[in-house]
């Protein structure tokens, strides 16, 4: 069973742009709980509690129990709208989930064993193509994270979804192709070193050739 976060919210009577702005003026963050065949509930949350919850890695792959005036809704956070400059939350959506419901969630990818990767030790860069992978699973079995082991990977190697061990009953939403999660590419410093080495290797034989006695030219 994954960890469940708890948030306390208040119901708000009115919905729409004006009501949402009034909620923000009152120092709270408007939100909504919807789904599971029940009526939506407009709520407002304390910004500090919400920002603390949002700062946790993998918040969107965590079940959240939202307590609204005594009633507890088991939900999955689906979307957060943010202020473009301050990045503070301006609205949040929670989707109500029933027991055993199958959902699509973006699971954060975590990389381990950086020091055991030969490519990274030699100055390569871990180029993360996907910071999160969309997974289809039941709400009781949402993986906390996808762990990618970098052990033994060299420059030019890449990690695809098939090489990641997935828990039972969890499958990626994209199944038609074996998509890339990360690659290890050479940094510009490594590339320059390689280019210099190649240049010196190319120059060295010509010096030897110059030192060697010239082959007799065949008579015309």
């Amino acid at each position: 069973m994954p960890e469940i976060t708890t948030l306390t919210a208040e119901a708000r009577g009115r919905v729409g742009k004006g009501a949402a702005r009034a909620t923000r003026r009152a120092g709270r963050v408007p939100g909504i709980i919807y789904g599971d065949g029940k009526d939506p509930v407009a709520i407002s949350l304390e910004p500090r509690d919400l920002s603390r919850a949002l700062a946790r890695p993998g918040f969107f792959a965590t079940l959240v129990d939202v307590s609204v005036d005594g009633a507890v809704h088991r939900t999955l956070p689906r979307e957060v709208q943010r202020h473009p400059v301050s990045d503070s939350a301006t609205h949040i959506d929670f989707m109500r989930v029933g027991a055993g419901a199958r959902v699509t969630v973006t699971v954060p990818v975590v990389f381990i064993n950086h020091e055991r990767s030969g490519g990274l030790r030699r100055g390569g860069i871990l180029n993360v193509v996907r910071h999160g992978v969309e997974m289809s699973c039941t709400v009781d079995a949402i993986p906390e994270r996808l762990v990618v082991d970098l052990d033994g990977l060299d420059i030019g190697d890449s990690v695809h979804i098939h090489s990641v061990a997935l828990p039972e009953g969890v499958r990626p939403v994209t199944t038609e192709r074996d998509f890339t999660i990360a690659t290890i590419s050479a940094s510009s410093a490594v590339r320059e070193e390689a280019a210099q080495a190649a240049a010196t290797a190319a120059v060295a034989p010509t010096e030897e050739q110059a030192a060697a006695p010239a082959a007799p030219t065949p008579a015309a």
């Binding site: 890695p57 918040f59 910071h131």
Partner: peptide, 12 residues
């Protein structure tokens, strides 16, 4: 300007 980072970065 303001420095920003991916959520969970530095805390994970």
């Amino acid at each position: 300007t303001r420095f920003v980072m991916r959520e969970g970065e530095g805390t994970a």
